[in-house]
C-alpha cells in the first residue's frame, strides 16, 4: 500500500532545543494511528510540521505522493490535512454554528447554496453531539464542548487526514465513550492521526502506535507490540502518564 503521509529525517530546532529530531514516519491510508509519549516529547510540534502550522528546520514531508514541505498551511488544508488544536482555539465570539460554517462553506463545491451549507453544518454538529448548542457563542460552551466543536470544525473540512491533538483532554468518561465511537466512524472515510494520553482510548482505537520521546521515535507497532516493548515500558508506560 502506498503511504498517505511520509516524513523523512524531519527536524525542528528551537534555538538549541531539538523539539523534533530526525523523524522518519509513515502513515497508511485508512488507519487510526496514535502518537504517544511524555509531555514535551515533540508530538504537537511534529504534527504541526505536518499540517504546516510550523515550518521544519530540515527534512521532507510527502502527502499522497506530493512533496508538501514548502506548501503554506492553507494549501495543505485544501489538500485534505485538517488539524484540531491541542489548545482549544475556537472562535469564541462566534456561534458554534458559524464556527462550523466557516470550514464548511469552503468545502462546498457549489459554494453558494445556503440550504446545503445549513445541512452540512447541522450534520457536523449532530455527529459531535452539539446540535442543541448551535446558537450558543463558542466561548460560552463548556471546555469539553469546545473540544468537540474543534472536532466538528475538523470534520467540516472533509479531510483525508484528520489530526487530533489530545482531543479527550477535559472530557468526562461518558463523553470519551461517545468520542471513541465518533473517531471510529470518521475513520471509515478518513485517516486519523491521534495524539492521546489516555491509554484506554489509545489501546481501544489505534491500529498502530508510534511512541515518541525527546523528539525521536522510540518505538512503533500494533497496540500489542507496544504493550510488550520493554523499552517503551521503561521510558514511558512504566511511569505515570503525564
Amino acid at each position: 500500500m502506498t503511504p498517505l503521509l511520509t516524513t523523512r529525517d524531519l527536524r525542528k530546532n528551537y534555538g538549541g532545543l531539538r523539539a523534533v529530531d530526525g523523524v522518519d514516519f509513515t502513515l497508511l491510508p485508512g488507519e487510526i494511528h496514535a502518537i504517544i509519549g511524555p509531555n514535551g516529547a515533540g508530538k504537537t510540534t511534529f504534527v504541526s510540521l505536518v499540517c504546516g502550522r510550523v515550518m521544519p528546520s530540515s527534512g521532507t514531508i510527502i502527502f499522497d505522493g506530493d512533496d508538501i514541505t514548502d506548501l503554506p498551511a492553507y494549501r495543505r488544508v485544501r489538500q485534505g490535512i485538517a488539524y484540531t488544536f491541542q489548545i482549544t482555539s475556537v472562535f469564541a465570539h462566534l456561534s458554534a454554528y458559524d464556527n462550523v460554517a466557516l470550514p464548511m462553506q469552503r468545502t462546498l463545491t457549489d459554494g453558494r447554496s445556503r440550504a446545503k451549507l445549513h445541512a452540512g453544518v447541522m450534520n457536523a454538529l449532530e455527529r459531535t453531539g452539539l446540535a442543541g448548542r448551535a446558537n450558543s457563542l463558542a466561548g460560552t460552551l463548556s471546555y469539553g464542548h469546545q473540544r468537540l466543536l474543534e472536532v466538528a470544525m475538523g470534520l467540516a473540512l472533509k479531510p483525508r487526514l484528520l489530526i487530533l491533538d489530545e482531543p479527550t483532554q477535559g472530557l468526562s468518561d461518558g463523553e470519551i465513550a461517545g468520542f471513541m465511537d465518533l473517531v471510529r466512524e470518521i475513520a471509515q472515510d478518513a485517516t486519523v492521526l491521534l495524539i492521546e494520553h489516555n491509554m484506554q482510548v489509545v489501546m481501544g482505537l489505534a491500529d498502530r502506535i508510534t511512541v515518541m520521546n525527546a523528539g525521536r521515535i522510540l518505538a512503533e507497532g500494533t497496540p500489542a507490540d507496544i504493550r510488550a516493548n520493554d523499552e517503551v515500558q521503561r521510558a514511558y508506560l512504566g511511569t505515570e502518564p503525564a
Binding site: 502550522r53 498551511a73 492553507y74 488544536f85 466557516l102
Partner: peptide
C-alpha cells in the same frame, strides 16, 4: 474570522 483569529482561519484552508 480573520479579525478574531487569523492563524486559526488559515488552518481552515483560507
Amino acid at each position: 474570522a480573520i479579525r478574531e483569529n487569523e492563524e486559526r482561519t488559515k488552518m481552515l484552508g483560507y
